[in-house]
Design a protein around this nucleic acid. Structure first.
Lengths: 231, 231
DNA sequence: GCGTCGCCGTGACGCTTGTCACACTCGCCC
DNA sequence: GGGCGAGTGTGACAAGCGTCACGGCGACGC
């Protein structure tokens, strides 16, 4: 009786999957505790299985030859990483590394494929997860292609406000827990531009307070509206 | 006995699906013949079903408020369009329109969902299709974020060379069948920049001849290498 | 033949952004 | 308290690119 079962069961990814299957999966899971900056895999590597983030934070990103990075997603507890290449047999399309000390579970490929074929719930969870990623990437393409840095930052802050914001009055307090350097890679720009973008957002009142890693910002809807160009 | 069955069967999307299922699907398909510039749906619309391109060309794109466009993909015969929102119930993430007169088949949502649940082959085809899209988008994000216009054009030409190139000697002849204006939206830039990018590619010898809509270019591998910065 | 129209090439200009350089603040440790 | 390093603000500058403007060229119709 593994201690991993309840954790797996709590993952949105395995919602509705039968207990027996979960135990089988849990038995094959390799738990892993890693520090900050641990590289799970790099773009182009062959795919050996599925990673699940139990605790911590994993960044998925692409690197250019000159060292610049664009992060595609940042995954937290309960989220799968690299579910894509399990199916088409291709290599990982991007790199992944932890940004804080994290606990991960690794599920070997064969196990997962078995579950995918035998459990309709898993199949539909996979499709949903791929779908969500696809939507996110479409959003990202548009953002990178059309918006300037300040708008990209506003959208990014809106995502935080949705996911981890404490609303108080007409402001939302969020804990960014990132340096401007990290933010810069997440929205595909340089650190200095992030600094200037913050200045701009403060001027228009969308960012109201910056103390340490804590931020008071306007509600997500307002941030997004501004980013879309509705002044 | 519908004439659509053999067409459906030939789609990579329905490879391996049982004849009985195909006939059922075909019976529910609504074939459609449309002109150039016909809008299938717009970003944000609710999703009613799946489109299949039987013949012609469909562009999938996002528009900014100022009218600029970034195309996410261009789909030809045998390709599905908008398979994503069928599953998570969300709206279309992008718009789609024909760029040439085309024949389409429309498969209502309920039918498709039924096939997805009952036919494992369909489910895995869907996952593969989503996966391919995801890979493509990751590629696109990187390209838009890191590369300059000339490199984006080179990559784009490399894709053409792979898909529709006639190799003769150490050159590949491709039929672009697009105006520079269309090319510009496909790589997310302005028409004039495409013109200048072509000039640059001609100078370095990657584009060797331009007569009408036909192009003689360097092999795909060479184009991609250059785009990656390996001069 | 001549106008018209769609497409392509190219120059000029300004804006955004990446880059370099440097100052400033705030912990933290000796 | 002084030094130090990480993180941040900001100015100067250049490169890339979008935009505007205009000219050339070929196809097509009258």
């Amino acid at each position: 009786m593994s201690t991993i079962v309840p954790i797996l069961a709590a993952l949105p990814f395995f919602e509705g999957v039968r207990e027996a299957t979960l135990e089988r999966l849990a038995a094959r899971c390799v738990p892993r505790e890693v520090g900050s900056g641990f590289s799970l895999f790099r773009a182009g590597d062959a795919c050996g299985g599925l990673y699940l983030v139990l605790d911590g934070r994993v960044r998925i990103y692409r690197t250019a030859l000159d060292g610049r990075e664009q992060t595609l997603a940042v995954e937290g507890p309960g989220r799968p990483v690299a579910e894509l290449p399990l199916f088409d047999g291709g290599p990982y399309p991007a790199s992944a590394a932890t940004v804080v000390p994290s606990r991960l579970a690794f599920l070997p490929r064969g196990e997962f494929e078995h579950a995918f074929r035998t459990e309709p719930e898993v199949a539909s969870a996979v499709v949903r997860a791929l779908g969500a990623r696809l939507r996110h990437l479409v959003q990202l393409v548009e953002t990178v292609a059309f918006r300037d840095v300040a708008a990209r930052l506003a959208m990014h802050l809106a995502d935080f406000a949705d996911r981890a914001g404490d609303t108080d009055g007409s402001s939302v307090t969020i804990d960014l827990d990132r340096t401007q350097e990290q933010l810069a890679t997440e929205i595909g720009t340089a650190r200095e531009s992030v600094s200037r973008a913050f200045k701009q957002l403060r001027k228009v009142g969308l960012v109201r307070d910056q103390t340490g890693t804590l931020l008071r910002v306007a509600p997500a809807a307002q941030l997004r509206a501004w980013a879309r160009g509705e002044t």
